[in-house]
């Protein structure tokens, strides 16, 4: 089981702060696709979010293991 933590606007759109994903052996890229399909309201955001796995930055090719904590964080552009 992969535990997905949502933040900021994404959390508000999803109306929840965590999502559990039971798929096994998937990559970060595949997780983003799964999230976009399962929660269509998040599809747009999945194109631009940053992903941290166990508090370490991860790109789309990173393979997820059972028990991983995945944080989905939208980049911040203001200033």
């Amino acid at each position: 089981m992969i535990n997905v933590l949502l933040f900021a606007g994404i959390r508000e759109k999803a109306g929840r702060d965590t999502i559990r994903c039971e798929r096994k052996g998937i990559t970060v890229g595949e997780l983003k696709l799964w999230l976009a399909e399962t929660y269509p309201e998040l599809a747009d955001d999945m194109k631009r979010v940053m992903i941290a796995v166990n508090e370490e930055f991860a790109d789309d090719s990173t393979v997820l293991k059972d028990g991983d904590q995945v944080a989905v964080i939208p980049p911040v552009s203001g200033g």
Partner: peptide, 29 residues
């Protein structure tokens, strides 16, 4: 919300490693 990182050539990844260019950023001021 805020974000901060320091990118150092030869020592760390760069901004482009983290974010794809050309994609909107969602929330604005």
């Amino acid at each position: 919300r805020g974000m901060q990182a320091t990118f150092i050539p030869g020592e760390t990844p760069c901004l482009r490693c983290l974010i794809d260019e050309g994609q909107g950023t969602g929330e604005t001021c």
